[in-house]
Design a protein around this nucleic acid. Sequence first.
DNA 1: ACCTGAACACCGTTCAAGT
DNA 2: ACCTGAACACCGTTCAAGT
Lengths: 236, 236
Amino acid sequence: MPVSSARRAPLTRARVLAAATAVADEVGIERLTMRLVADRLDVEAMALYRHVASKDALLEGLVESVVDEVSAACATLDEPQPGPGEDWRAVARRRILTAREVVLRHPWFPSLISARGTMGGSLLRYFDAFSGILLAGGLSPELLHRALHTLGSRVLGFTQELFAPDAPALADPDEATAALEAVAADLPSIARMMAVAVHDADTTIGWCDDQAEFEFGLDVTLDGLEARRREEAGRG
Amino acid sequence: MPVSSARRAPLTRARVLAAATAVADEVGIERLTMRLVADRLDVEAMALYRHVASKDALLEGLVESVVDEVSAACATLDEPQPGPGEDWRAVARRRILTAREVVLRHPWFPSLISARGTMGGSLLRYFDAFSGILLAGGLSPELLHRALHTLGSRVLGFTQELFAPDAPALADPDEATAALEAVAADLPSIARMMAVAVHDADTTIGWCDDQAEFEFGLDVTLDGLEARRREEAGRG
DNA sequence: ACCTGAACACCGTTCAAGT
DNA sequence: ACCTGAACACCGTTCAAGT
């Protein structure tokens, strides 16, 4: 439903991607439609095809946009390499948590990235900058390679969370207790874990404090990699 | 295009899910269509709706099917708990690598699981069995909780691989060298890493040996968690 | 009781036609 | 040169009708 045709800013690829990002943020990626993006730009859907080859290309562009946003946020940290004597883990950690802040604003990003296999240019450049930190920190190129695989999506600030019971349902103590009892018979080990979590409820944010969990898992991983680095250094 | 109507096996939910699994394995999850699943069963698409409430419910059922397959494969291991004096890591490791074998047969499984937020019953039971191993191994319920988050999708045998350059393109040494030179100017750190990988090419399977990378990352994670367990035990 | 046919609303995408 | 209108093929899904 484009408006009658007053003077509009000209359509550009950047405007298309910005509109698509806004649509994804608001209605979710699974409801993003060429026609919805076009509506937001006061244009017919077919006009988009002048700036993106297909819906798939648009989604690819969306990934690049978020990665650019991550890179920009990391640039403001202004500390591309570990300083002399500084642990590489601290530098990598700050970058990763900065990436996480950006990705939290675009919760559809993880699912998009798992859908497509290839890495675009901006993602490669981000990885190159990140790799520079680990090399400067003393990882060998071989260990760097394995470290990137080990960190996986954590490098971009998110993890695939499998174990995520409904947080809201468990926020209320009474409901949580009821859920616990219902679960105890069939799922004894999970029930034990839940009992503890419910008990700690006032010291953490709800059932699963995602930020705390992310940082814990990140530190476990970084520590494990640093241990491998030291082993390697000891041998070499 | 259902056939004229000879005697057929009656449609059941199980047959629908089996057909859908076969379709997903063959054409990929993104091309799975209600009509395609129906065709394979010699039935009209609308007949499926008697056994699944919607396409989304069908996909949910697909997830449950794979998890059941994983659970069945793990059951044949016949070692639900770490034996006395045995490291929990070895038991967890075998289970996870068994899960991986199943998931490798259904490569669409990871993307399906990242798309939907909730955990079905069979996934909860799988997690409960897995949790039992870690508790028997001496992890506290608190640490178990964090361990599950840290392991994330690795518990089911896969990771979100971000850094996956096109393996086939790099299998040929000449092409690999060309790619390396093209990349060296813009991406110095990645180039260093690639140079090493190309050099090692005859000792590993292609550029990225996924199985080896998965096991490396898994061990780094398990070792990190075991270190946390020992810290905890030392304090308690 | 179980499946089918026809239809609806909504996609991505094309292409000739408008300005 | 850039955008639109109409149309096509293909979805998921509904519902009354068939057997």
